[in-house]
Design a protein around this nucleic acid. Structure first.
Lengths: 122, 122
DNA sequence: TGTATATTTGAACAATCATTCAAATGAATT
DNA sequence: AATTCATTTGAATGATTGTTCAAATATACA
């Protein structure tokens, strides 16, 4: 078997060295939908703007324009990212007149970030 | 002050509602370089291919082609992502003849992923 | 009702990025 | 020395994405 044969089935049929180890490892992985879910949360935290928004909201409930001021961004850019964070239930908001006050909806996120920060500060 | 004035300085001069709160919140944020560092790690974990690689390596030390087989990807795609994970010291590798065996270099990562998984499975 | 303002939204744009393919490298085997 | 094979690498491609700008909502206030 060589790479020319593999061209017919580009993904799932590469050379395998240790079939037993591959099978055992594969069996221990989370299912594909759980993996996507985990990656999805990490991805949200992986953008500096979104991370700053979350770090700010961990400290205080804030309206959109104050949030923009805190993280040195624009109202529009912040609003777009708030939508993503809201849709994944990481944050929530309440309306008060014209204002929208955003806050953390998911308390586990703070622990997650704290854990990583502790690690990086070792 | 209105939006037309802000066009001259598009970022740092938006309307601020509560200056005290903004200043206090700003003071509590991590410095910009620490924020980038945190986001950088989360970003690496935020891609399904890279996350699967890490999940697989948590279970077993694996060579590149077995890793590709485990996560149903190609050797080349995996190799490219391994480079990124290696450069951020999340994984390491040892050479054995033609083979390269990769493994986890950062034990905190497992805890981080476990913590998120526990949270999602509530 | 008309104006001001806080927020949201959609389209456009540029930048980033993951994957693919082909070629190169490096090490074992014959 | 030539061949095979595991891995790496670079360029190209297509897709995703964060930001910007302008316009639309929506609420308060005069």
């Amino acid at each position: 078997m060589n790479y020319i044969m593999n061209k017919l089935a580009p993904v799932c049929e590469v050379q395998i060295i240790d079939r037993v180890k591959v099978k055992k490892t594969k069996a221990k992985l989370p299912h594909s939908d759980e993996t996507s879910q985990i990656a999805g949360i990490f991805k949200l935290l992986g953008d500096p703007t979104r991370l700053k928004i979350i770090l700010a909201l961990i400290e205080n409930e804030l309206c959109v324009c104050d949030l923009a001021a805190v993280i040195n961004s624009t109202v529009s850019a912040v609003s777009h990212q708030l939508r993503l964070l809201k849709s994944e239930k990481l944050i929530k908001f309440r309306k008060d007149g014209k204002m929208a006050y955003y806050s953390i909806d998911d308390n586990h996120i703070k622990n997650l970030i704290d854990q990583l920060r502790e690690h990086l500060n070792e």
